[in-house]
Design a binder for these strands. Structure first.
Length: 588
RNA sequence: GGUCCCGUGGUGUAGCGGCCUAACAUGCGGCCCUGUCAAGGCCGAGAUCGCGGGUUCGAAUCCCGUCGGGACCGCCA
């Protein structure tokens, strides 16, 4: 071993001991004579002190050392003078007097300064990610992530789950996200697909009688990236046999509740037990199926108030079967023209034709809708919405779905603008009773809202023939602070129902056999009732670490264009590789 | 596929038509300094302003294109 202790563990109690540390030079402060050098490793930082008179050989080496050199330092742990304790350092009561110093490696001047958390362009951080990761913030994130995963593994083990690995090279799934394909050398023109999730495999493990399965599973989806979306990400994938919806929810709720207390005790749950909303309720009250419940500002339906309105915008929306809804921005009656214009632009970006506002000022009604709204209508809106003087009411009038989306989006924008959400509150909640199918206007066909293996509500089975849009499913999402954190369902375990779903999705008999024959066949060999869930780990750690995007909690993430800027991937393949894979590149 | 924002020494910013022979901070190099801890002081090196084209007497600054980065919409069962 190169060391007896880490740079984070020496305390007053170690005073008098001779120790050896190894780590990186965090910074150096020279005083002509005495030199202070701070040594860093994953565990922390420790001050090394060197004096030319006491240990001249060590001093010579220390005097040469630059930032990020790797040193091995042996010396005595000494108490600092009591008026020189550094309360900002965990090791701030002691220092190590360098007696022997070995340079294990030197370092060029680094493109980013490791000892400081400066907010560089992310590009440069990613290019030198191994330096970025040396920083305390990133080290902390990696450790936190490890603790989260460790807690999950332990919890699952204690509750009878076994971790089973499933293939990364598997088969393309026709629905859902775009697949990453891997060409087969042995089978020309044939491709494996990387799993979007181990969905089929974990269900087959249930058929196999594994009863309780989990996996810290990497998932791959070839779609455009976002701050909370990477092409590869990690899920706690889990599946259970002989359970109903609430059994799964209860287990995961318990896991997360205990994990939060163990890993990030400074975070508070908004409510326990977690609120449970139906999909419909979530969308109508918050305008989204992943509501941020840390604050109110719920959507209020005021269609009835404006049934006879002279305001053309409202009138025409209502006449064509639409709705008028509003949200109340507290204390925002004084918003400037510029503020309101910005909100209007946002609303248009979300699909609105415009935005009607009503400011409740001491001088009466103001805002774009003021001259079209009667006193009685304003009073009725106030009564329904709880708006008071000083508030700004934002109206959207359109098709129901558009209105919900627009106001839901504005609700989040106002949250950030007004600072309405506390960062240490974790507003976990369940969204349940999702529709089974959604009509795909573009392709004129039904899509599975969750995935095609989701169990429809048994009571809704007759609607397959009459009204598929009304079929609800036993699918559920875990949401937190405006993010979708997990998604799951009770699965179909009967091949007849599975077949019905595939048929409704427009798959031909031939396609069903070719793409899902193995699943249907498995269900004919005694598949148990089962269900599960797949909580996302990246987003969870992002929230727990107070980070603005998931790249900050992934060691080596891709940038927005899906590139690894450190290794420069993806990269062209060689002629030889392409030939072996039977692939020809076609220039556009 | 679309919308918006950004691109100036190693890093982060300022400059936004002539005062720029490009400023400041930090980092880097040298010197001084024996108790600092974002140490301090002095000196120094370091950018033809992402790239290409255009407008202009004159472009870091305006316009067009392009490349790179970010946020968002579409997409993400």
């Amino acid at each position: 071993m190169y060391r007896t202790h880490t740079c984070g563990e020496l305390r007053a109690a170690h005073a008098g001991q001779t120790v050896t540390l190894a780590g990186w030079v965090h910074n150096v402060r020279t005083f002509g004579g005495v030199i202070f050098l701070v040594l860093r490793d994953r565990y922390g930082i420790t001050q090394i002190v060197s004096n030319p008179e006491t240990f001249p050989d060590a001093h010579k080496v220390i005097a040469e050392a630059k930032a990020e050199w790797v040193l091995q330092v042996t010396g005595a742990v000494k108490m600092r003078p009591s008026d020189q304790f550094n309360p900002k350092m965990a090791t701030g009561e002691i220092e190590v007097e360098a007696q022997t110093v070995v340079v294990l490696n030197q370092s060029k001047a680094t493109p980013i300064v490791v000892s400081r958390d400066e907010d560089e362009n992310e590009d440069i951080r990613l290019r030198y990610r191994y330096l970025d990761l040396r920083r305390e913030r990133m080290t902390h994130n990696m450790v936190l992530r490890h603790k989260v995963v460790k807690f999950m593994r332990d919890y699952m083990d204690e509750h009878g789950f076994i971790e089973v690995e499933t293939p990364i090279l598997f088969k393309a799934t026709p629905e859902g996200a775009r697949d990453y394909l891997v060409p087969s050398r042995i089978h020309p023109g044939h491709f494996y697909a990387l799993p979007q999730s181990p969905q089929q495999l974990k269900q087959l493990l249930m058929v196999a009688g594994m009863d309780r399965y989990f996996q810290i599973a990497r998932c791959f989806r070839d779609e455009d990236l976002r701050g909370d979306r990477q092409p590869e990400f990690t899920q706690l994938d889990l599946e259970m046999s002989f359970v109903q919806r609430d059994d799964v929810l209860a287990l995961v709720e318990d896991l997360y509740t205990k994990m939060l207390a163990a890993v990030t005790p400074h975070k508070r749950l908004l409510a326990s037990p977690w609120p449970k909303l139906s999909y419909r309720e979530a969308v109508e009250r918050y305008g989204t199926d992943k509501p941020d419940l840390r604050f109110g500002m719920e959507l209020v339906d005021v269609s009835a108030v404006f049934a006879g309105s002279g305001f053309k915008v409202f009138q025409s929306a209502l006449e064509t079967g639409g709705v008028v809804k509003c949200i109340v921005a507290p204390g925002c009656a004084g918003f400037s023209r510029k503020d309101v214009d910005a909100l209007t632009e946002s609303a248009k970006g979300l699909g609105a034709k415009g935005l009607a506002t009503l400011a409740l000022t001491a001088e009466g009604l103001k805002g774009t809708a003021a001259k079209f709204v009667s006193e009685a209508e304003a009073e009725a809106v106030k009564a329904r919405s709880g708006a008071r003087e000083g508030d700004l009411i934002l109206f959207a009038a359109d098709e129901r779905a558009v209105v919900n989306k627009v106001l839901g989006g504005l609700r989040v924008i106002l949250r950030d603008k007004l600072g309405l959400a506390e960062k240490d509150v974790m507003a976990f909640a369940w969204v349940v009773d999702f529709p089974m199918f959604a009509w795909n206007e573009e392709e004129q066909k039904w899509d599975a809202e969750h995935h095609p293996f989701t169990m429809p509500k048994m009571d809704d089975l007759p609607k397959f023939e009459t009204n598929p849009a009304e079929i609800l499913s036993d699918a559920y999402d875990m949401v937190c602070n405006g993010y979708e954190m997990a998604s799951g369902s009770i699965r179909i375990h009967r091949s007849d129902i599975q077949r019905k779903v595939f048929q409704l999705l427009g798959l031909s008999e031939e396609e069903i056999e070719r793409k899902f024959g193995h699943m249907l066949e498995a269900f004919e060999f005694g598949a148990p009732p089962h269900g599960g869930m797949a909580p996302g780990i990246d987003r969870l750690v992002m929230l727990l670490a107070d980070e603005p995007n998931i790249r900050e909690v992934i060691a080596f993430p891709k940038n927005q264009a899906g590139r690894d800027v450190m290794a420069d991937a993806p990269a062209p393949a060689t002629e030889k590789q392409l030939k072996e894979l039977h692939i020809a590149i076609v220039e556009k």
